[in-house]
Amino acid sequence: MLIDWFTIAAQALNFLILVWLMKRFLYKPILHAIDAREQRIAKELADAEAKKADAQKEREAFKGKNKAFDRQRDALLSQATEEAKAERQRLIDEARQAAEVLHAKRQDAMEREQRSLNDEITRRTREEVFAIARKALTDLAGTSLEERISEVFRRRLRELDGEAKEGFARILKTSSHPVLVHSAFELPSEQRAAIQHALNETFSAEVHVRFETAPDVISGIELTANGRKVAWSIADYLTSLEKRVGELLQEPSKPKTKPEAEPETQAGFKPKSGTQPAAPEEAE
C-alpha cells in the first residue's frame, strides 16, 4: 500500500506546523533584519546626502568668503600702495626742500665769506697802496702825501671844465653857507691856505670854506657844495681794484657754488661795467 491516510494527515499537519515554525523563527526575523538594515542604509545615505549638501553649502560659503577676502586684500593692498606712493612723494619733496634750504644756506655763507674776504682785501690793499704811495711820494718828492693829495685836489679844482665850474660858481654866489672841504686827515694851515687860495683863484671870488675831517674820505679831499662835488681820493682807485679783485675771485668760486642748478650761468663772468674809476692820470 503506497498511500497511508494516517500518514498523509500527519504529514500535512507536520507541514503546517513547520510552516508556522519557519515563519516564526526564520522568515520574520530575517525579513525584519533585512528591512532594518535597508532602513538604516537608507538613513545613512540620506544623512550622507544631507552632509554632502551641507558641505557643498559650506564650500560655497567659504568660496564667497575667500572671494570677499581677496577683494578686501586687493583693496587694502592698492590703498597701501597709494599711501606709500604719496608718502614717498612727500618725503622726496621734504628732502628736496631741505636740500634747497641747505644749498641756499651754503651759498649764503659762501657769499658772506667772499664779501668779508673782499672787504679784508680792500682794506689791506688800501692800507698797502696808501703806505706805498706815501713812501714813494715821500721818498721821491720830499713832501708828505697829504701835501701831494692837496696839490692834486687843487689842480683838479683849477682844471674843472666849463659847465662844472659855472655850476659851482653859481652855487657859491647864491649860497650863504660856506662850502665844505672834507679830508681824511687834518689839513695843515698852509694846505688850507693853499686850497682857499685855489678856490678863490678858480671862482674869482672870496669863497667861505669850512674844513672838516671825515675818516670815510679815504686818503683824499672832497669839496661839496649843495649837491655838487669835486673830489680826489684813493678810494676811487681802491674801488677799481676791489672790482677787479672781486671779478677774479668770482671766476673760480662761481662754478663751485652752483655746479648743477644753473649750468648756463657757469660762465657768468659779467662784462666790465662802465663804472670805471677816475682816470689814472689824476693819481699822479
Binding site: Q11, N14, I17, L18, L21, M22, F25, L26, P29, I30, H32, A33, A36, R37, R40, I41
Partner: peptide
C-alpha cells in the same frame, strides 16, 4: 519528518537568535 522539522526550526532559531541589523 520530525527530525527535519527539528533541524530546520532549531537551526533557524539558533541563527536568528543574534541577528545583526548592521553591515
Amino acid at each position: 519528518t520530525w527530525g527535519l522539522m527539528l533541524v530546520l526550526a532549531v537551526g533557524s532559531k539558533l541563527i536568528t537568535r543574534r541577528l545583526s541589523t548592521g553591515l
